[in-house]
């Protein structure tokens, strides 16, 4: 079920503060955030976010068509190493 329209999209309050500050200072520095569940609003466009993926921070540049998605959608939290990678490696080294 979708979120109630009355409340509006969810954006972490601390993230909003950081974005307002960056807009005011016109700074291009990546904004560090852990709030992957925040929705991208039109205010974000043109900024670079540094989003936590559980281990490190990944920089993403927000474009216009990313609006409406959650921040976490763009930063993957899992790395997939191909199946049988270890056996391939063993086969080539021996």
């Amino acid at each position: 079920m979708g979120r109630s329209v009355k409340k509006g999209p969810f954006v972490d309050v601390r993230l909003i503060e950081k974005i307002e500050k960056a807009k005011k200072e016109n700074s291009r520095k990546p904004i560090k955030t852990w709030s992957r569940s925040s929705t991208i609003t039109p205010d974000f466009v043109g900024l670079t976010l540094s989003v936590h993926n559980g281990k490190t921070f990944v920089n993403i540049y927000i474009t216009e068509n990313m609006v409406g998605y959650k921040i976490g959608e763009f930063v993957h939290t899992r790395t997939f190493r191909a199946h049988g990678a270890h056996t391939d490696k063993a086969a080539t080294t021996t």
Binding site: I60, T63, N65, M66, G72, E73, F74, H76
Partner: peptide, 12 residues
């Protein structure tokens, strides 16, 4: 295609 082009998890 839009989902993949903007790099979302769903597109992936």
């Amino acid at each position: 295609r839009e989902l993949t082009s903007i790099g979302t998890y769903r597109g992936y």
